[in-house]
Design a protein around this nucleic acid. Structure first.
Ligand code: FES
Ligand code: FES
Lengths: 143, 143
DNA sequence: TTTAAATGATACCATTTTAGTATCATATAA
DNA sequence: TTATATGATACTAAAATGGTATCATTTAAA
């Protein structure tokens, strides 16, 4: 299992785009801005909607908006929405295959590393990312 | 790209096995102990050999031994031998697709996380793993 | 000097995962 | 009533991973 799939990635960029505007945005606007394939992006938005990261409204003049403030949605939420964070515990064999299970130092170590990753992802919010990008753009102008 | 493939994993267990004995070990001994498929494990050992993690001797009574002391081979070395650590810089699109490249907060964040992972892997040696397992086994006996 | 036991190189196939497409149903405002 | 949305879902394509099989070469011992 990849930790970050392309889906999750498109998802983040879509969320950032939606966060920047703060009105309902139709899928069409999203995929033309984020440059993701139309159908793929539609599916992604639907997932985010099901997972309560986005709120959708149907019908003409419908579209998507953030369900929460940008500081309240983390990368971890997004990654998990797309099935990241399986295979927990660090053992790539799911406990099978390495006869050594109970004493397996590798498993333990990898487990620790995984934890770190999820921790980091959990602490990074959409707001963080937006802020970062703004700062960089600002720095750029200042030069 | 998965960070840790099954290949890398079998590799680590194979290395631990070889480290524990300290004489030349033939592939056959390795795959019966580690319980990996015969051909697959042979291929893995060959890679480790090419990458100078193992040293091999051909011919009857040949086999593999560690090229360095167990404290001098890190998990990172092994992971890299099997093609982990591609897609550097955190951008899952390789810089394409996210029009935003220069200002991309996501890329930056993911890059940081990657760095951490590699750092941890780099700091974990075969010796570390061996020690861990020994300690656990000892604890177990003590109870 | 032949043979058995080993690694080296490589090409190939199978399975699983990820990426992407297409279609139809339903809702809703103009 | 029609144009523009999303919802659900089934399907296909491409890529990555996991695994197999074969043949060549080396080496020690019978
Ligand atoms: S690798 Fe899974 S228990 Fe050791
Ligand atoms: S995700 Fe690649 S540059 Fe933004």
């Amino acid at each position: 299992m990849k930790i970050i799939k392309k889906e999750a990635d498109y998802a983040v960029r879509a969320l950032l785009f939606i966060a920047a505007k703060n009105e309902r945005v139709p899928a069409s606007a999203v995929y033309s801005s984020v440059k993701a394939p139309r159908s793929f992006m539609r599916k992604i938005l639907q997932v985010l909607s099901r997972e309560k990261v986005l709120v959708s409204e149907k019908g003409r003049a419908g579209g998507f908006r953030l369900a929460r403030k940008p500081e309240e949605t983390s990368l971890l939420t997004v990654v998990e929405a797309f099935g990241g964070r399986k295979s927990r515990g660090g053992c790539p064999f799911d406990g099978r295959a390495c006869g050594n299970y109970g004493f397996c130092g590798l498993r333990e170590k990898l487990g620790e590393i995984e934890e770190r990753i999820f921790e980091k992802l959990g602490k990074t919010s959409l707001k963080n990312l937006l802020r970062r990008e703004d700062e960089k753009k600002k720095d750029y102008k200042d030069n």
